[in-house]
Amino acid sequence: MIRIVSTTSTLAGSILLLAFVCLASTAVYAEWQTLKEDGLHDPLNPALQWLQNPGDALGRMPSDSAGNKVDWVRAFEDGYIRPRSSIHGEAEVKQLDTEIIMNDTGSLPRVMFPHKPHTRWLDCENCHEQIFKSKAGATPVTMSKILEGEYCGVCHGAVSFPLTECNRCHSVPLNGTAKSQ
């Protein structure tokens, strides 16, 4: 009996410890690696001391749960950053404030593509006409192609928020019974 109680209490203690360490590891994950530790830069390179570590810059910006852990769109809109529109300063840029709804999403919520945040960063020709036709519905976008790095996947999953964030694009609920799915 004593042995059973002892084993049970050790198991419970271990589970508590596991929960604590998992939380601690999440906290570690939420921070940015220094260049010396990121597994990408050569720690023997003496020039690393002159380069900025990601956390020094990104830690001051609106946070996000994925990618660089920065909400880049909000950082720009709220004035945390003022990225230039041209190499020589400011150039006139074309911004569009229309939204495209993609209906062919099966049982998932429909996709709403907002032009506004995209045209704050990108020129029309970055997407049109090579990646997307300008005519709505004329481009055969599929999730499998996106996961292979085509269409939205040219940027999302590489530099803009990753493809783990389903609901940010699939944001328009289906009506009727399908909504509960």
């Binding site: 810059a57 990104l58 950053i81 990225p83 230039r84 529109s85 840029v93 960063w121 970055n126 530099v159």
Partner: peptide
């Protein structure tokens, strides 16, 4: 990318 997009929009 993170360092450069603080300073420049993608279009640059």
């Amino acid at each position: 990318h993170w360092f450069h997009r603080i300073r420049f929009q993608c279009r640059v």
